[in-house]
Amino acid sequence: MQKALLITPQLCTGCRQCEMACSYEKEGVFNPARSRIRVFDFHAEARFVPYTCTQCDQAWCKSACPVDAIQIDFATGAKVVYENRCVGCKVCTIACPFGTVNYNADTGKVVKCDLCGGDPACAKACPTRAITYVDAEQTGYDKMRVWAMKTDTAHQAQA
């Protein structure tokens, strides 16, 4: 059964262990700026919101890619960037309405969450279970897609 990242912002304390774990797993360095998951800090409301790719069905990044460098990992459902094909044109970084595909100037390629091949480091590192990796259906896969839906309401509204 497919799993998905379930993010519960109410449980997030802003410790940024997820960012550390992600950047270490993916880039080999402890550098939150290199993380593919980001924690947004709303001081005024004392609220933290972890945010990353929802692996949305629409896959705007994948359909905009001119050279087929973004593929679906059939085991996890993740949309994965194949670095050997990516030419660094960045069109996916503007096509993704969630802002979760970013350009890495050091490598000349784009980066995004790939669910770590099915064992996401952010979820393992989260001490408060604000980020969990769970059976998609069992716990309301749809809930995780809430961001995707919000942007897609434009479709429904005009339908």
């Binding site: 960045k90 970084t93 503007i94 096509a95 993704c96 309405p97 969630f98 802002g99 979760t100 595909v101 970013n102 350009y103 100037a105």
Partner: peptide
């Protein structure tokens, strides 16, 4: 370059 997609 960070998160520019959300402008869309």
């Amino acid at each position: 370059t960070e998160h520019v997609g959300v402008l869309r």
